[in-house]
Design a protein around this nucleic acid. Structure first.
Length: 160
DNA sequence: GCCAACGTTGGC
DNA sequence: GCCAACGTTGGC
């Protein structure tokens, strides 16, 4: 199992919004970056662990835990002219953008950016790298276990 | 609102 | 293939 950090603007979809969705899951639509897309299409597997991160908001940070709930499938919003994510260069015959579905696992106390940056164990976290703008970044086993056990008072072994 | 950093576009 | 211009992200 791999681990990921996925950014969401809480005004678009917060951890509470995810918990309130039917089946407590949501298609992770709207990713328009090839590297992030490739993580979803090539590297993610159903069951992978997700740190649900609130970005572009008053308190950016990890707000919950989630899980990859599907393999990648074409992002429907690319076909919808009314959507801000519409892509005129995409077609159903040749989709350009894909997304996985993400399922709610738990809401957690917010672990803010300053807290993450204060921990030497997390110094190499991709999401903290200078200039990083990727909305999906890999999380190592060690980072995942550290965050759950030391910052969230959770037992990483409970997340199966 | 500012601005650093990065990705994409498009002319050449 | 280079690279300047532009748009976007996202913390502050």
């Amino acid at each position: 199992m791999r681990y990921w950090l996925m950014k969401s603007e809480p005004e678009e979809c917060s951890i509470d919004d995810l918990a309130a969705m039917p089946d407590r899951r949501v298609p992770w639509f709207g990713v328009r970056n090839y590297q992030a897309r490739n993580y979803m299409t090539r590297d993610m597997a159903v069951g992978d662990g997700v740190l649900f991160y609130h970005s572009s908001c008053p308190q950016p940070g990890i707000a919950g835990l989630a899980r990859v709930a599907s393999t990648a499938h074409p992002d429907e919003t690319q076909f919808d002219p009314a959507s801000p994510y519409f892509d005129p260069k995409a077609s159903r015959a040749e989709p350009r953008w894909y997304n996985v579905d993400v399922a709610f696992v738990a809401k957690t106390p917010l672990v803010g950016l300053a807290t993450l940056r204060a921990r030497p164990e997390l110094a190499e976290m991709r999401v903290l790298a200078r200039g990083n703008r990727l909305s999906i970044t890999p999380v190592t086993d060690d980072e995942w276990r550290f965050i759950l056990s030391e910052l969230l008072d959770a037992d990483p072994d409970d997340f199966q």
